[in-house]
Design a protein around this nucleic acid. Structure first.
Length: 570
RNA sequence: CGGGGAGUGGCGCAGUUUGGUAGCGCAUCUGGUUUGGGACCAGAGGGUCGCAGGUUCGAAUCCUGUCUCCCCGACCA
């Protein structure tokens, strides 16, 4: 039993000025988290209890599958990160010690774990191995926000698998996917598993666990008729049949004046055609193997470019950057809005939906003019066609079943198959059955602990406060003590013992406050069951059992209280 | 990093236009009346107004510089 009076805990009536979303506001108002610096928070006793419960479920599910917990250092030497080639990444916070040696704070632990196993696991007989830790990470995020949703310092569970072959690594990946499903099911969160981009970690096979929430930073596209789900960043946009007959046959080239028509919409209106039948020209700068080059992208006027697809398809080192207006002018001789592919020296990539377009309307590379009847084969050369546009709600689902629908999510987990990306660069090998040295096939798997806790709050709250899922509530039972007599106290002591024997935890609001204050705070803190015990009912042998989620009040006799509590919690 | 905004007791804010020596609500402390949905009355403590420099008889307010924080865009658990 924990008493409020021992907690040094305070709640607030007003929302903090910097909190934008309900979960952030509630966690701060409930006194559970406090900001020290942007993206850096202290977890108060209540928040810590919730996070420990998240961690306990995570540990339990990992341990069940034979994963082993370890703990790696947070301060890591530069040399290690140079081996993998990730030293200098902008999220890495680097520092020097007194000997002027370089270190960074651990943003992730692929390097350390690879170093940890590389000289110890030397035989295929010792594989597979999955190791994990729960630890504080530091990433120097450009813009932290939404409380724990995007912090610079945060607690993460990260696991790493080592296998002897691609097939075995895929098995580990599948196993971890199951572990993750069990974890999020146990937590009681509403989530979707979506196909994702690997980002800086690298790797090919990767999925995200997204907790559904309006305020989520990620847009997800899901099929309304199958279990297809993908992050919009990578969601395939199928080539669809071209509805516009006028673009399908070749015509003669003709320049026409388009003064004051700067956007595709303007142009579409003035020509009285669909934006999708026009062609948009965009200019980018990308780097490939550290070589910088410019390229041009064509897509339908109605589409938006997806720079992650460009990066992946063109094997760029990073997402390409759009050229500035001045750079565009230098390249084409015209301002954006009047630019087109004809006469350009850069490589030109086109969205696959443009394959059928034999007669395009594009900018003339001359301010205030466009060209019509432009033929790709005759008037300029397209390097290649591929899917490079952002997929959209309403488009057919890539698995051929149903239509895409847009929803938003918070990425709480991410699983990757890494292959030999780290084991090869860091020379981590073992001997296979044939006695041949092979690099480990690796996978890595992360869950944001604080983010998961906050996502739960985001998904479960009402106008009065937090409504904790039973799985991660800081306490199971909140006792609002309205009066403080010896009889009541000994009853509460006794009751606590009984419910604690059932594995439940008890929080007692023993402050000298008026009932209204206690009720408001109990609502705000949001533990699943509330007991209201005051002189009035007590002398008649009654207490009130309140279900925070349903707001149902049950009058209970003193004796039956434990049964009523079990009815709600067990 | 680009664009917008803000720094005034622990929290939320007013005061800045038009310089005159700092105020409100919440929170805290004391006393009293209250006590089943954020009580009321009386009193008290707490701020060199982000920092530095300048103008002025006088600066929260005007000028210069600087730091920090927040919001919108590219990253990620």
């Amino acid at each position: 039993m924990t008493r409020w009076s021992q907690l040094g805990h305070k709640t607030y009536k007003e929302n903090p000025s910097d909190a934008e979303i309900p979960s952030h506001q509630l966690l701060v108002r409930a006194g559970m988290i406090k900001k020290l610096s942007p993206g850096i928070y202290t977890y108060g006793p209540l928040a810590l209890r919730a996070m420990r419960k998240v961690e306990a479920i995570i540990r339990d599910e990992h341990d069940k599958e034979g994963c082993q917990e370890l703990l790696m250092p947070m301060v890591q030497p530069k040399a290690l990160w140079e081996e993998s080639g990730r030293w200098g990444y902008p999220e890495l916070l680097s520092l020097k010690n007194r000997n002027d040696h370089d270190f960074c704070l651990g943003a992730t632990h692929e390097e350390v774990i690879t170093d940890y196993v590389r000289n110890d696991i030397t035989s295929y007989k010792e594989l597979p191995v999955i190791l994990y830790q729960v630890q504080t990470k530091y990433r120097d995020e450009i813009r932290p926000r939404f409380g724990l949703m995007r912090g610079r310092e945060f607690i993460m569970k990260d696991a790493y698998s080592f296998d002897e072959s691609v097939e075995a690594a895929h098995k580990s990946y599948a196993k971890m996917k199951e572990v993750y499903k069990n974890i999020f099911n146990k937590l009681g969160l509403e989530y979707r598993i979506v196909k994702a981009d690997a980002g800086a970690i690298g790797g090919s096979l990767t999925e995200e666990f997204q907790v559904l929430a309006e305020i989520g930073e990620d847009e997800l596209l899901v099929s309304d008729n199958s279990d297809f789900a993908a992050n919009i960043e990578i969601c395939e946009a199928l080539k669809v049949a071209c509805d516009f007959d006028h673009v399908k046959k070749e015509e003669s080239l003709e320049e026409f004046a388009t003064p004051d028509l700067k956007t595709i919409e303007d142009l579409a209106k003035s020509l009285n055609v669909e934006a999708a039948s026009l062609v948009k020209t965009m200019f980018f700068e990308g780097t490939k193997e550290s070589k910088v080059f410019q390229f041009t992208v064509l897509l339908r006027g109605s589409d938006q470019v997806n720079s992650i697809k460009l990066k992946n398809r063109l094997s760029l080192d990073d997402e390409p950057r759009m050229l500035t207006d001045t750079e565009v002018k230098a390249l084409t001789g015209a301002s954006p809005g009047s630019c087109g592919p004809v006469g350009l020296k850069t490589p030109i990539y086109a969205d696959h939906n443009l394959r059928d377009y034999k007669s395009m309307v594009v900018g003339a590379n001359k301010d205030g003019f466009h060209l019509k009847g432009v033929s790709p084969e005759r008037d300029f050369k397209i390097e290649s066609f591929f899917d490079l546009a952002l997929a959209r709600e309403g488009a057919p689902s890539p698995d051929g079943k149903g239509t895409l629908k847009s929803i938003r999510g918070v990425e709480v987990g991410h699983i990757f198959y890494l292959g030999q990306k780290y084991s090869a660069s860091m020379k981590a090998s073992f001997l296979n059955q044939q006695g041949k040295a092979c690099f480990f096939e690796m996978g890595c798997y992360g869950i944001g602990v604080g983010r998961t806790m906050q996502a739960a709050v985001e998904q479960s709250h009402d106008e009065d406060g937090i409504v904790w899922p039973k799985s991660i509530a800081p306490f199971d039972i909140h006792i609002s003590l309205l009066d403080n007599t010896d009889e009541i106290n000994s009853y509460v002591e006794d009751l606590s013992k009984k419910v604690e024997e059932l594995g439940l935890t008890v929080f007692v609001d023993d402050r000298k406050e008026r009932p209204g204050v206690k009720f408001k705070d109990a609502d705000l803190l949001g533990f699943p069951v509330r007991l209201v015990i005051g002189k009035r009912g007590f002398t008649n042998g009654l207490i009130e059992v309140f279900n925070r989620k349903t707001k149902e009040k049950i009058e209970s006799s003193l004796k039956e209280a434990v049964e009523k509590i079990k009815g709600i919690l067990c």
